[in-house]
C-alpha cells in the first residue's frame, strides 16, 4: 500500500469515527437535557415558556460538540489538507 492509499483510507476512516462518536455522545446528552426539560414542564406547566426556552438553549450548547465533529469530518472528506499536500507532491 503506497502512501496515498494510506492517507486516503485514514482520512475516510477517521472522518467516520469522528462523526460516529461525536454524534452518538452529543445525542445522548441532548436526550438527557430534553428528558429533564420535559419532566420539569410536566411538574410545572405554568413555567413551560421559561423551561422550554432554557431547554432549547441547553440542547443547542450540547449540540456544539456534534457540530464540531461534523465540521472536522467535512474538512477531512472535502477539504483534506493532507490529501491536497500529497496530490501537490505527486503533481511535481
Amino acid at each position: 500500500m503506497d502512501i496515498m492509499a494510506i492517507i486516503g483510507a485514514a482520512s475516510a476512516f477517521s472522518a467516520a469515527i469522528c462523526i460516529a462518536i461525536g454524534g452518538f455522545a452529543s445525542c445522548v446528552g441532548e436526550g438527557y437535557a430534553a428528558a429533564s426539560g420535559l419532566s420539569a414542564m410536566a411538574q410545572q406547566p405554568d413555567e413551560a415558556g421559561t423551561i422550554s426556552r432554557t431547554t432549547f438553549v441547553c440542547m443547542a450548547i450540547c449540540e456544539t460538540g456534534a457540530i464540531y465533529c461534523f465540521v472536522v469530518a467535512m474538512i477531512l472528506i472535502f477539504a483534506n489538507p493532507f490529501w491536497n499536500h500529497v496530490i501537490s507532491l505527486a503533481a511535481k
Partner: peptide, 16 residues
C-alpha cells in the same frame, strides 16, 4: 466562535 461554527454547521449540514 462556537456561535459561528454552530450556525454554520447546522445550516451547512442541512444543505449537504
Amino acid at each position: 466562535l462556537a456561535m459561528a461554527i454552530r450556525l454554520f454547521g447546522n445550516m451547512c449540514s442541512g444543505v449537504i
